[in-house]
Write a protein that binds this DNA or RNA. Structure first.
Length: 270
DNA sequence: CCCCCTTTGAAGGCC
DNA sequence: GGCCTTCAAAGGGGG
């Protein structure tokens, strides 16, 4: 139900008239840095989308973000380029690829008192290990409790890049076509299909990803990708280095042969 | 239960 | 600036 509201809001987004410059080829995208290097000028107006959110049913902000601050941010931040590709081909893109469906960008609620009280998918609570018994708590040191507090802090996920958005959209299709279930195999197929896409087709996803990053920046101004470093266990460095010399993937192969990762096709891995 | 696999792209850090 | 590392998603496989 709440999701319905979100989807209808997204429809508004997708049909919001684009500013001039729509249709420009967005690839490769210039990096959108999350730092204070963002220009302060060119502040846009709040789109009807956000007004739709704010009334009559206010959109709950993530728990760790001041709601008013977010709203203000959305009202004043530069999203003028946000809709540049939302008409035409972009408008035909299935809504499954959007910041509404992207867990890290979905507006949920962990705001106390909010009627919906839907957990915010963007902010993923760490898998809570078993609670300590009361008598255990007394044994905990200050450092331990601090560490635990830190661990309980919800995680704000990275925004999805263009390929991830493409994967999310096409995964089900590939699974149906190939009757495969293993993600590793599916991702290999998706990687090949990604390279088989035309520049225009890829551009749709690059543009979507750019919007995702922009909105993510506005929702979580102080967030850095670094925040999530170390929260995932990584395979051993030795193994990783070994895999880097493995020419088995186009990316690795391109890196190995000094090819452009964006444009050059990797012949040996084809 | 949790990490690995596998993909591309973004971003941060180091030299 | 180039290189390296990590993390985004996904779910079966394996220790």
């Amino acid at each position: 139900m709440y999701k319905d509201t979100v989807y209808s809001a997204f429809n508004l987004l997708m049909h919001y008239p684009p500013p001039s410059g729509a249709g420009q080829h967005p690839q490769p995208q210039p990096p959108l840095h999350n730092k204070a290097s963002q220009p302060a000028h060119g502040v846009p107006q709040l789109s009807p989308l956000y007004e739709h959110f704010s009334s009559p049913h206010p959109t709950p902000a993530p728990a760790d973000i001041n709601q008013k601050q977010v709203h203000r941010s959305l009202q004043t931040s530069d999203i003028s380029g946000f809709y540049s590709l939302t008409s035409g081909s972009m408008g035909q893109l299935p809504h499954t690829v959007s910041w509404f469906t992207h867990p890290s960008l979905m507006l949920g609620s962990s705001v106390p008192g909010h009627p919906a009280a839907i957990p915010h998918p963007a902010i993923v609570p760490h898998s809570g290990k078993q609670e300590l018994q009361p008598y255990d708590r007394n044994l905990k040191t200050q450092a331990e409790s601090k560490a635990e507090k830190e661990a309980k802090k919800p995680t704000i996920k990275k925004p999805l890049n263009a390929f991830m958005l493409y994967m999310k959209e096409m995964r089900a299709k590939v699974i149906a076509e190939c009757t495969l279930k293993e993600s590793a195999a599916i991702n290999q197929i998706l990687g090949r299909r990604w390279h088989a896409l035309s520049r225009e087709e890829q551009a749709k996803y690059y543009e979507l990803a750019r919007k995702e990053r922009q909105l993510h920046m506005q929702l979580y101004p102080g967030w850095s990708a670094r925040d999530n470093y170390g929260k995932k266990k990584r395979r051993s460095r030795e193994k990783h280095q070994e895999s880097n010399t493995d020419p088995g993937s186009p990316k690795k192969c391109r890196a190995r042969f000094g090819l452009n990762q964006q444009t050059d096709w990797c012949g040996p891995c084809r």
